[in-house]
């Protein structure tokens, strides 16, 4: 290997190393950004706009700006989600949760819809079961022949009513 080739080889290695270092720092920044976005989506903005922190776009909202900055710093320090959450709750109270935590009283909020659905489904199934009637055996031909014009007309009216729409 000539000197020139060796120099070129080291140059390529150096370039690759520096570019991968640059890329990795960019990726790290992007990962941190994504993580901040993901965690920020779990908090409410405290400017009383009733929006999720990462979605608050109140013109001139200083609250969300400072909260997001605080969040970015915590993410940059490598704090865990639990640590960040407890920090925010300590500062702003439980109002800061965008969704109730899955513990304590808040479990009620999470479990209620499922309970409604289960109880409702049971109720509907019970109602259907209760309302189901035993179907009479199919009428015989002779019985059909014996039907009066009045009954036939009533049956026709009912069929029309039940099948029109």
């Amino acid at each position: 290997m000539t000197k020139r080739r060796l120099a070129a080889f080291f140059l390529v290695i150096a370039l690759s190393a520096s570019s991968s270092a640059l890329l990795s720092s960019h990726l790290q920044a992007q990962q941190a950004d994504n993580r901040a976005k993901q965690i920020g989506g779990k908090f409410m903005c405290m400017c009383s706009c009733n929006q999720v922190l990462t979605q608050c776009n109140h013109v001139g909202c200083t609250t969300s700006a400072s909260m997001l900055k605080h969040l970015d710093e915590a993410v940059a320090r490598g704090e865990s989600e639990t640590e960040i959450t407890s920090g925010f709750v300590q500062e702003f109270g439980t109002k800061v949760y965008a969704e109730p935590p899955k513990s304590g009283l808040s479990l009620v909020a999470w479990s209620l819809p499922t309970i409604y659905l289960l109880l409702g489904t049971l109720l509907v199934v019970f109602v259907i079961w209760k309302w189901r009637r035993v179907m009479p055996r199919a009428a015989t031909v002779s019985a059909v022949r014996g039907i009066s014009a009045q009954d036939l007309e009533r049956a026709r009216r009912r069929v029309t009513q039940e099948t029109e729409d």
Partner: peptide, 27 residues
């Protein structure tokens, strides 16, 4: 009922525990 209970949950949570728990869009 789910929307209603979620909407009113912050009020109930304040009554029961003294602190208001927000229920936002993710819930």
């Amino acid at each position: 009922i789910a929307v209603l209970s979620g909407t009113l949950f912050p009020v109930f949570s304040e009554w029961f525990s003294g602190s208001r728990i927000s229920v936002g869009a993710p819930f």
